[in-house]
Design a protein around this nucleic acid. Structure first.
Ligand SMILES: Nc1ccn([C@H]2C[C@H](O)[C@@H](COP(=O)(O)OP(=O)(O)OP(=O)(O)O)O2)c(=O)n1
Ligand SMILES: [Mg+2]
Length: 1139
DNA sequence: ATCCTCCCCTAC
DNA sequence: TAAGGTAGGGGAGGAT
């Protein structure tokens, strides 16, 4: 877990690393020997309170603390807490005597803090970050700042929150990084205090002596505009926190002498000076993207996560479908034959019972849940050391730069650092040069992506064999629900009088298994909810397991800080410091829920409020539908002309297409993200071929494929992308990063589903779209029409009008900016269409400023804060083509997802694609392009199939295909019963798994009707009615099978959201009750006999399949009801009766 | 009062 | 040489 994001891109290590560096440098040399095993120290230390003096001699402690406290430390200013944190931080990087030094300092500070209380307001409004070693120490300066009403910023994570930086020296990288910030010497503060007034900081401005290199920081400001918006404005650097401390604009930054330019990387400059080199190593290279992605660790991490989620989902679906493909316990059914880093081709075989509740249905924050957070210790390093045992015990890091002791000035990033390396203060994400500075003897080993993939699959396979449910977190991390197994073990342990913790034993069993198959250590945190399990892992690492019990939560959490909670990073921490005065969890726990909400937002505030109390209702997720697909490269982007940029865009578009096709999706919205070099930044930033400080722009527009449909066509994507990029009119030489994101995704198969009533634009033909493109795919050799480098669009339509049959908006309502963003082919189609209808548009009318803008003349800034003239909405596809086929996102998979949007029960019109289908009794298009013949071939009755909800149809197809494919089609699908895993596949010595024991059975027998409130709004009722419709189809469709867990999960969420007062009103409750009643009725209709059957005793053999299925359904029902009651109890104080 | 869009933020 | 990718949660504020 660890991993903090190091800062946004190269800022993170700041305080920590710099401090560590300072410490090393000043105090003396590092003493590697002192690194011990860090393990033991962990437990007790973390919890140690603030008491000042703790001997910090042991590196271990240092280590663990550093790990935990990590970058943040000096949080709030609570004297005690703060001091302690600082110490911890410093101690982290410490070596020998330095620790002593810090210890003393800490004691001293504590005393000082004690009498600080309220000081002057001299520094009020200032948020100061102290960089590196300073003459008055950091602690002393911090003290001074706080005493005088200023805010001490321990980290530079959120530069937007820092007004000034104080330093005595800066590395080249820092100089560059801070170039836009106000950097002053400590004297500024000291003198101001002396003077009793805040003196002008510029008089104490820090002037760098020299420079060298190192990482840089840069980050862009986000400037964004939607297509609709007029581009005329300059980009105002919105607030890009990171880069500009308090400087909001480049201009402002430029005003500062020393910031006028950033630090540059001489090596990069030299390389870039060579045309041949450029051609071969930057974005202009034909195979740049391929080579880049092949070596990008972050790309691999993202890709693997996505693939793992798919594998897990697939495996679970298979389990649910009862198709136990020759699987014995969980294992990788297939491993990609050819090596490769992709997980594709592999398959995880779930061992558990298909009917398993997977724990998902457990009551919220139910203390009965047993969640384990499993995470490899320094994964990349551990994997690499398996074949390099001689390096174990040494400070090792994984990074691209491999030259023995070289890399003194390497900007290569350290992906993972061994625990020995961490004891030197080295962290994941740090540059090798920084690491080398901290530890000259650092050993570097190369990436071995394929090995990581293999280990990960083995790891997941082991987990799958033990988990009731599993959520893939990353290549080396996963969350598993082992509630059922552990419950069994507990019963067994209780019977045997064992005093061991079954959960921990089980975790150790899992650890041993992973160790056996990978040779690597996995640490496991155990708790009754996800939040706590993650926290427990901190203490479990390295190489251990830890069960955080409910009774120990308060004590465990109190000494930790905000960023230790998953989901709360540096920016949130900064807000906490400013608005709450502390980031210490113990202190934050004293704040009211409203205080937290006011400071961090309602949702975040409540999440924190509960989290501070160890409460977390988050359920494991393993089947969420994808919402976006993107491709972005912000490294090595160096163009010389528009042709190269366009060529690149086309290659990226092809990549996007591959990704969309891989998941069989198409989209109807596209967003371009552009990073443009900050005018004041050097051409070549500190980081080799990095993007350096940039201004960030984004522009979104509709993605319209042939026929006006959603698409994945690379030509179309490229055309829209290029158009979008051109609209910015940026000098191609200034581009440093490009991203293409596709949203409003739909299943490619479902695409054809066009609600009957909806009319499509009578585009003449689709191919028109790609027409302009000359080249096939790789490169657009040509620009469509206006190839003018600069920018924009071309023609304005001038139609004529006419009545329209379709739902085309009157031309005058067409947003010209949108129009211009369309590919020429589409523009023509539209024009023709309007022309056909002879509607005369209000010409320029609609777009006030629009008309002029286009010529692309003005390069400066197109994107800027929007323009009033056009509202974004109009820009959207909907605005332009209101009648667009409402192919709503029918993400085929989840029923409930559709039903349970964010908020309440009501379904918004836009999300009602599913409704549209359902309402129209007979769904127009039977599913995706599945022909009737195909259906029959799969043993499905087309007629019946057509009546099913889309999701159900898909499910049926999946099952049918699997059955057919596996041949395991014992009997007709209808005969499948809920299978139990062969026998429980528990580890030896463990008890077999049984069907999920029914939770309490609160409800009474039948008798529908009656309940709290009565429906109030007809509308709501109607909606609920639709939900009921779906429900009936669902139950009916699965009457021979146990319900799919995913569906259950969605339904469950729908119900819970409806009941949750925060999200839904009373009508939500009403809806929930109605749906549950209906479900009850349906279950009784099919399985009245098994409603009260107790599932306690295991039945290895399915006595009667029907019974098994019925039991599964009833168990599911009870599970959802239980969850519903938990929420209801919280909100109303009691359960909800369905009678 | 919602919903929806456009971001920021976080994580690995 | 180095390979700073990506997806989803949630908040602010406008549209409905
Ligand atoms: N900034 C980062 C963070 C992580 N990773 C990669 C390398 C890590 O090995 C892997 C897993 O990340 P973790 O956060 O789990 O870190 P480790 O596994 O290295 O260490 P640990 O989990 O023991 O803290 O992801 C990376 O490339 N860059
Ligand atoms: Mg790890």
């Amino acid at each position: 877990m660890a991993s903090q994001d190091s800062s946004e891109y190269y800022f993170d290590d700041d305080s920590q690393i710099l401090n560590a560096l300072e410490g090393v440098t000043l105090p003396g040399d590092v003493e590697p020997e002192q690194i011990e095993e860090l393990k033991d120290s962990q437990e007790s230390e973390e919890l140690e309170p603030p008491p000042p003096a703790q001997p910090q001699t042991h590196l271990k402690r240092t280590f663990s603390q550093s790990q935990e406290d990590d970058d943040d430390e000096g949080e709030g200013r609570e004297s005690d807490v703060q001091v302690e944190d600082d110490e911890a931080v410093y101690g982290a990087s410490r070596f020998g005597d330095f620790g002593q030094y810090m210890r003393r300092k800490r004691a001293k500070l504590q005393i000082q803090n004690a009498d600080i209380s309220e000081g002057s307001r001299l520094f009020k409004g200032l948020a100061i970050y102290i960089n590196g070693w300073t003459q008055p120490s950091v602690q002393e300066l911090r003290q001074l700042i706080i005493e005088h009403g200023g805010i001490f910023q321990p980290y530079l994570d959120n530069k937007g929150l820092v007004t000034h930086i104080i330093t005595c020296s800066l590395t080249p990288a820092k100089i560059k990084e801070f170039k836009h910030m106000k950097v002053a010497r400590p004297e500024w503060l000291l003198e101001s205090v002396k003077a009793g007034v805040l003196l002008p900081w510029r008089e104490f401005q820090y002037i760098p002596e020299e420079r060298s290199e190192s990482s840089q920081g840069g980050k862009p400001k986000q400037l964004q505009s939607s297509l609709l918006v007029q581009p005329s404005l300059p980009v105002k650097p919105a607030q890009d926190p990171l880069y500009t401390t308090d400087i909001k604009t480049s201009a402002e930054a430029a005003a500062i002498p020393s910031y006028a330019s950033d630090i540059s990387n001489p090596n990069a400059r030299k390389a870039m000076a060579n045309p041949e080199w450029r051609k071969a190593h930057t974005s202009v290279s034909a195979d740049f993207i391929e080579g880049y992605y092949k070596n990008s660790r972050l790309h691999h991490l993202s890709t693997w996560k996505s693939e793992l989620k798919d594998l897990v989902q697939e495996a679970q679906e298979r389990a649910e479908a009862n198709v136990q493909s020759a699987a014995q316990g969980g294992h990788i059914g297939k491993v990609p034959s050819e090596g490769g880093v992709s997980m594709r081709g592999a398959a995880l075989v779930p061992p558990k019972s298909p009917s398993r509740w997977k724990g998902k249905g457990k009551a919220l924050d139910d203390h009965d849940r047993v969640i384990m957070h499993c995470d490899f210790d320094c994964f990349f390093v551990s994997a690499g050391l398996v074949s390099r045992p001689e390096l174990k015990g040494k400070p090792v890091v994984v990074c691209h730069s491999q030259g023995g002791t070289g890399g003194a000035s390497s900007t290569s990033e350290i992906a993972s650092a061994s625990y020995e390396a961490r004891s030197f203060g080295i962290k994941n994400g740090m540059s090798l040069q920084q690491g080398r500075a901290l530890c000259p003897d650092l050993v570097t080993i190369p990436y071995e992506f394929e090995r990581y993939k293999q280990f990960s699959l083995k790891f997941y396979t082991v987990l799958m064999s033990h988990a009731d449910d599993l959520q893939a977190v990353s290549v080396d991390e996963a969350l598993i629900d082992v509630t059922e197994v552990v419950s069994q073990l507990r019963r067994q342990a209780a019977a045997e009088g064992s005093q061991y913790d079954p959960a921990k034993d089980y975790a150790e069993t899992i650890r041993a298994e992973v160790r056996k198959v990978t040779g690597c250590e996995v640490s496991i945190g155990i708790a009754h909810n996800i939040l706590l399990a993650r926290l427990a892992t901190r203490k479990a690492k390295p190489g251990g397991s830890y069960h955080l019990l409910p009774e120990d939560v308060a004590e465990y959490l109190a000494p930790l800080e905000l960023t230790n909670l998953h989901g709360f990073g540096r920016h949130t921490k900064q807000k906490a410091i400013e608005k709450l005065g502390t980031v210490n969890l113990g202190e934050l726990a004293k704040k009211s829920k409203s205080q937290l909400s006011d400071a961090l937002g309602k949702g975040t505030g409540e999440k924190l409020y509960n989290g501070l109390r160890g409460i977390d209702d988050q359920q494991l997720e393993s089947d969420k539908p994808r919402k976006s697909v993107s491709c972005e490269i912000n490294y090595g982007i160096r163009f010389e002309n528009n042709e190269q940029a366009e060529q690149f865009i086309y290659q990226m578009a092809a990549e996007v297409k591959r990704r969309l096709d891989a998941i069989d999706m198409v989209g109807r919205s596209i967003t371009m993200k552009i990073m443009k070099r900050d005018p004041t930044a050097p051409l070549e930033p500190a980081k080799f071929l990095g993007h350096g400080p940039c201004d960030l722009f984004s522009k979104q527009g509709p993605l319209i494929g042939p026929g006006g449909k959603a698409t994945s066509d690379d030509q179309v994507i490229a055309e829209f992308s290029w158009r979008l990029l051109k609209s910015f009119a940026f000098d191609p030489k200034e581009l440093r990063g490009i991203g293409i994101q596709i949203t409003k995704l739909e299943s490619a198969n479902a695409a054809p589903n066009i609600p009957a009533g909806q009319a499509l634009l009578p585009f003449k033909r689709l191919e028109g779209i790609s027409t302009s493109k000359v080249t096939g795919k790789a490169g657009p050799s040509h620009v469509p029409q206006n190839s003018a480098q600069a920018m924009p669009p071309p023609p304005l339509p001038e139609p004529t009008k006419q009545s329209n049959v379709l739902e085309l908006p009157s031309f005058s309502q067409v947003d010209m900016s949108v129009f211009e963003a369309l590919p020429p082919s589409l523009q023509q189609e539209l024009k023709d269409e309007y022309s056909r209808r002879s509607e005369t548009p209000g010409a320029g009318g609609a777009g006030p400023e629009r008309a002029a803008g286009p010529s692309g003349i003005n390069p400066p800034r197109p994107a800027s804060p929007t323009k009033p003239a056009f509202n974004r909405r109009s820009a959207t596809p909907a605005g332009l083509f209101p009648a667009k086929p409402a192919t709503k996102g029918i993400n085929v998979k989840r029923i409930t997802h559709q039903l349970a949007p964010n908020s309440n029960a009501s379904i918004s019109p836009q999300k009602s694609a599913l409704y549209a289908l359902l309402r129209k009794k007979p769904p127009k298009l039977v599913t995706s392009r599945v022909t009737e013949a195909k259906l029959r071939d799969l043993g499905i009755d087309p007629e019946v199939f057509a009546m099913l909800p889309k999701q159900v149809q898909d499910e049926q197809l999946v099952r049918a295909r699997i059955l057919k494919e596996k041949g395991t089609l014992p009997e007709a699908p209808t005969q499948r019963k809920v299978l139990k895993p062969k026998k429980p596949t528990l580890p030896p010595g463990f008890v077999v798994y049984r069907a999920p024991p029914p939770k309490a059975r609160y409800y009474n027998p039948p008798a529908l009707r009656r309940q709290g409130k009565s429906k109030k709004e007809k509308l709501v009722f109607t909606e609920a009615d639709d939900v009921q419709n779906v429900l009936e189809k669902w139950v009916t469709a699965y009457k021979h099978w146990a319900p799919r867990e995913k569906d259950v999960e969605y339904l469950s969420k729908f119900i819970l959201n409806s009941v949750d007062g925060a999200k839904a009103g009373d009508r939500g409750v009403e809806t929930a009750v109605m749906v549950m009643k209906w479900w009850l009725v349906l279950l009784r209709r099919f399985w009245a006999g098994s409603e009260f059957v107790d599932d306690e005793e295991d039945e290895d053999i399915d006595g009667s399949q029907v019974d098994q299925v019925g039991k599964a359904w009833w168990g599911t029902f009870r599970g959802v009801k239980a969850q519903m009651d938990v929420v209801a109890r919280k909100r109303f104080g009691g359960c909800i009766s369905l009678r």
